[in-house]
Design a binder for these strands. Structure first.
Lengths: 281, 281
DNA sequence: ACCTAGCCATTAGTAACGCTAATGCCTTTG
DNA sequence: CAAAGGCATTAGCGTTACTAATGGCTAGGT
């Protein structure tokens, strides 16, 4: 972001032209003239030093470079469009909406949600799954369980815990020889920290990288290797003897799962109380 | 996108100000004056009709509305920044990056990936998880497995199959009485379609809504009810007798999982061939 | 209590931008 | 061959986006 970005209107014109493969139609959609579209796309091409379209007598064809750029531009425009309508009011419905990390959904809620529902036979629940914190989903949810580091999370959020980093595999093991190592990217700790905590001299190199502790744990539970992952997620399966911890040391886990609720929704408060009890058990 | 978006520079100034909580520092970073930042943020606030910052003597604090907007703006700026540097030469690394629906990661890849890795002992794999199609992740991946309907997916993508909609539960059941029904929102079919296909007269009302077939299947596998979900995802667990299909009829599944690869990456081609074989077995 | 520093908001002015209308060129279609 | 479609380019002008200057308010230090 050190250099300035092209104007947003250039991206919009590019995206519309790519959809229509026709500057004139794109102009009509955007309420501009063909000339404006032509100039904006030309400016973008000049800025990037690539040809985004081939011009033909009856419209355009998109180049490989244009095709490469399009999804990213489309995604950014959609996000900014959604961001720009964030402040429009929306109706609420009698339904508990839980925006939750997929890891928590899979490893904590899926095995346990019946106990909560048994107390509320008429309640319906909608899950919105997230891989990383998703403010849009959070903004429409009654309950949010987000993954992140404490400093990135609002002050109203309660960390689910205790939660440490542990090495987990499907079978009890005496060590790591011959095992694939599974590590979650985007988190502060790695297998090097685990190695140091166990006074090992060797450099541990992962074979499999995931972007969630939950998927790392899933890979371990399917016997693909040893996952460095969250003890909170693994607790249920560890208790049932379905998974095993390798090594005795645990690492402090800087990133974890944080619960926040809309205090105006009674069911959300009930869900929070239930979940905290369930985890403590 | 019917209405015009604010200028990109407004968003940039907002984002920089939110990071620094100080217009003067944001101005310095962006190479503008404090006055320009102040005016741009003011313009954005006027456009949205909300206060994004509280002004204090020694800088800013961000409002709840500002906090709500920031991640989306940050994400879009990051995407456009990455898009703008797409045409700078970048190093590629010897690593297979797979952008995949979390449902496929959990139910298809996690149980099987070892068979692929056994053939490529030096290959490392990075998973990028998606709930819905994510063009940014797709653009940086060597392999993409996305969820959607055929008309929304590029013509290069191959549907993984066969894939039908089936009712799945943890135990064999003679019917649905007393069971919670689990349905995936955002898909074309519902329990009404299943009811009709089984010549049932009653209206089936789900208790649990999920936003992925994978989470629906997970809930079923944990005994939370009967999930209407993808036979492709369930196939492995059905074959092992870990899950059971309820009723004999299957529904056509308009939405499924589509595989696309970067043909320039040899490992991606190998992965595709392997996966198609693995699913057919 | 007083003074200074920090940092915001506002104003006036101007260079640059972003667009339009008009025109020209090329290809395709009937 | 003529007309239609659709692109590129140019000149012109209204608007925007920025700067420099100034003012107001609060916090911190003496």
């Amino acid at each position: 972001m050190a250099r300035s970005l092209p104007p947003l209107n250039w991206f919009r014109s590019f995206e519309a032209a790519a959809r229509h493969l026709n500057f004139t139609a794109a102009a009509e959609e955007l309420g501009l003239t063909q000339s404006a579209i032509s100039q904006q796309v030309r400016s973008l091409e000049t800025r990037f030093g690539v040809q985004l379209f081939e011009r033909k007598a009856r419209g355009l064809s998109i180049t490989d470079d244009g095709r490469k750029l399009l999804p990213q531009v489309g995604a950014a425009l959609e996000i900014l469009g959604a961001a720009s309508s964030t402040f429009d009011a929306g109706p609420t419905e009698q339904l508990l909406t839980i925006a939750t990390s997929v890891s928590v959904a899979q490893w904590i809620l899926a095995p346990r949600i019946d106990a909560f529902l048994a107390n509320y036979p008429d309640l319906r629940v909608r899950f919105l799954s997230t891989v990383w914190p998703d403010e849009f989903k959070a903004s429409i949810a009654d309950v949010e369980i987000r993954f992140g580091a404490e400093k990135q999370v609002g002050h109203n959020a309660l960390r689910l815990g205790p939660d440490y980093l542990v090495a987990i595999s499907k079978e009890p093991l005496d060590g790591l020889e011959g095992q694939r190592l599974i590590e979650t990217v985007g988190t502060s700790m790695s297998w090097q920290n685990w190695s140091a905590a166990h006074c090992m001299q060797q450099t541990l190199v992962p074979s499999l990288y995931t972007d969630s502790f939950g998927l790392a744990l899933e890979l371990a539970s399917k016997g693909q290797g040893v996952a460095l992952t969250s003890s909170l997620l693994a607790a249920g399966a560890l208790a049932k003897g379905e998974l095993f911890q390798i090594g005795d040391a645990v690492l402090v886990n800087p990133e974890g799962y944080f619960l926040a609720i809309d205090e105006n929704v009674k069911a959300a408060g009930a869900f929070r109380d239930w979940l905290l009890d369930a985890i403590a058990a």
